[in-house]
Simulated scan of single mutants.
Amino acid sequence: MLLDAPLGGDVTLHDLLAGGLPAPDETCGFIPTDARLAALLRSLRPTEPAVVFAWTDPGGSTRADAALRASTADPAAVGERVRRRVRRQQAEQDRRRRAQQTGQAAIEGSRW
Rank of each mutant, 00 (worst) to 15 (best):
L2M: 00
L3H: 05
A5D: 14
L7M: 15
G8V: 07
D10Q: 13
D10I: 06
D10Y: 07
A18E: 12
G19V: 04
G20L: 11
G20Y: 11
P24I: 11
P24F: 09
D25M: 04
T27H: 10
G29F: 02
G29A: 04
I31H: 03
T33N: 07
A35L: 11
A35Q: 13
A35D: 12
R36I: 00
A38S: 15
L40H: 08
L41S: 10
S43C: 10
L44Y: 07
R45Y: 08
T47I: 01
T47C: 01
E48R: 01
V51R: 06
V51D: 11
V52R: 07
V52Y: 02
F53M: 14
A54T: 01
T56M: 13
T56N: 13
D57A: 15
D57Y: 02
P58Y: 04
P58F: 04
G59F: 01
G59H: 03
G60M: 11
S61V: 09
T62A: 04
T62D: 03
D65F: 02
S71W: 04
A73K: 03
D74Q: 09
D74K: 06
D74S: 10
P75M: 08
A76Q: 08
A76L: 08
A77M: 03
R84W: 00
R84M: 05
V86Q: 05
Q90C: 10
Q90H: 08
Q90T: 14
Q90L: 13
A91N: 06
E92I: 12
E92V: 09
D94V: 12
R95A: 15
A99I: 01
Q100N: 10
Q100T: 15
T102A: 15
T102W: 03
G103C: 06
G103A: 07
G103M: 06
Q104E: 13
Q104M: 09
A106F: 04
E108C: 03
W112F: 01
W112H: 05
